[in-house]
Design a protein around this nucleic acid. Structure first.
Lengths: 180, 180
DNA sequence: TATAGCATGTAATTAGTTACATGATTAA
DNA sequence: TTAATCATGTAACTAATTACATGCTATA
C-alpha cells in the first residue's frame, strides 16, 4: 500500500493519542508545519483513506452534541508508521525559499536594494524564531508530561535553524554594506 | 499580470544571457534547484506564457540544423524581474524535509533506530554538501568572468547550510548515543 | 447576543513531477 | 555505430492550497 508523506503525518499525530481531524490540523500548525505543512484539504480525505485501508479506526464521540469523530491507530497502522520511520528510502528534501531565490538573482539590484532584501529575509527568520520560542513552554510541558522528547528536540532544531539563517543574513548585510 | 515564482526563475536565468529552455533547466539543476526546483513540465509552458505576455522574446537560431529557440528579456521583462526582486511581499518559505519529519516522530523508535535515522539524515546533507562543492569551481569562474557575485554567495550559503544540518545531526547522534 | 473557537468537509484551482515521444548532433 | 548529450515538448497524474459552506458550543 502506497502512502504519501502527509498520511504519515496523520498516522504520527494519531499515534500520540486519539485525535480528530481538527486536532491533527491544530497540532500540525504548531509543529510539523515548519518542515512539513498540511491543510484540511489533505487531512480529512486522508483520514478516510487511512480508515478504509484499516490503518486507523474512527469512532464518533458526541461528547456533548457537537459532531466529532476521533481516530486511533490499528496494529497495522502502528506497523506502517514504524516501517516508514525505519525505511532506508532516501528522504524527500525540498526547500522553497523565495528569499534565497531573490538573493541568487540580486546581481540585478543596487547595493541599497540588496541590503533591503537581506533585511527582509532576516526579519522573516527572526519572526519564525519568535513563533517557535512562543511554542516552547507548551512543548516542554508535553515532553515532561508525556515523554515527547523528539518533538522537543525538533523544536530546538527549528530555533537554531532559524537562528542560523538570521545570522547568515546579518553577516551578509554587513559584507554587502562594507563593499558598497 | 500575476506571475508565479517559477516564471521569475525563468526571467532571472534569461537575464544572465540569451537562453534556451534546455539551458535554463541545466542551470536550474546546478543552482536554484537547491532552494527552488523547476522541471521541463514547468519551464517550456512558462516560456510560451512569458513570450505571449511580452516579457521575453524568442528567436529561432538553427545554429547547425538542430531545432533551437533562445530567449532574451524585453524591457518589460527586465522591469517585472526588478519589481519582484524589490517587492515587499512576504517571501514564500517552505521546507519539506522528510528526515526532520521522521525525527519529530522518533519517540516511536528505539535508540539504535533513532541513531540510524540521524546517520541517514547526516549522510543526506553531506551528499548535498559534496555536490555543491563540486559546483564551486564553475561558480567561481562565472563570478570572475561575468561578475555573478550573488550566485556565488548563494553557493557559499548552500554549503554552510548543508554543513549546519550535518553538524546538527552529528551532535544529536552523540546526544542520543550518550543517553542510551 | 455576538464572537471566537470547535468541528467536518468539499470544489476549484494551482503547482509540480514523471514519464514519455521525437529527433538531431557529437564524441568514443 | 552506439551512447551521450542537445533540444523541445506534452499528457497524465499527484500534491497541495484556498476559499467556502455548514453548524454547534462556550465565553465575554
Amino acid at each position: 500500500m502506497q502512502l504519501n508523506r502527509t498520511a504519515y503525518v496523520v498516522l504520527g499525530m494519531i499515534r500520540l493519542g486519539r485525535r480528530t481531524g481538527y486536532e491533527i490540523k491544530s497540532l500540525v500548525d504548531v509543529s510539523t508545519r515548519f518542515f512539513w505543512a498540511a491543510s484540511y484539504g489533505q487531512i480529512y480525505p486522508e483520514l478516510r483513506r487511512l480508515e478504509e485501508a484499516g490503518l486507523i479506526e474512527g469512532e464518533d464521540d458526541p461528547e456533548s452534541g457537537r459532531r466529532r469523530r476521533s481516530y486511533r491507530l490499528t496494529a497495522a497502522g502502528e506497523r506502517a508508521l514504524h516501517d516508514w520511520l525505519t525505511s532506508p528510502e532516501p528522504h524527500v528534501l525540498e526547500l522553497r525559499d523565495e528569499g534565497v531565490l531573490k538573493f541568487f538573482f540580486a546581481d540585478a539590484l543596487d547595493p541599497d536594494e540588496q541590503i533591503a532584501l537581506l533585511r527582509r529575509m532576516r526579519e522573516r527568520y527572526e519572526g519564525v524564531s519568535e513563533r517557535l520560542e512562543a511554542i516552547q513552554p507548551g512543548a516542554q510541558a508535553a515532553r515532561d508530561a508525556r515523554g515527547e522528547e523528539f518533538a522537543y528536540f525538533t523544536l530546538e532544531w527549528g530555533i537554531s535553524h532559524a537562528g542560523f539563517m538570521a545570522d547568515w543574513c546579518s553577516r551578509m548585510e554587513r559584507r554587502v554594506a562594507a563593499s558598497r
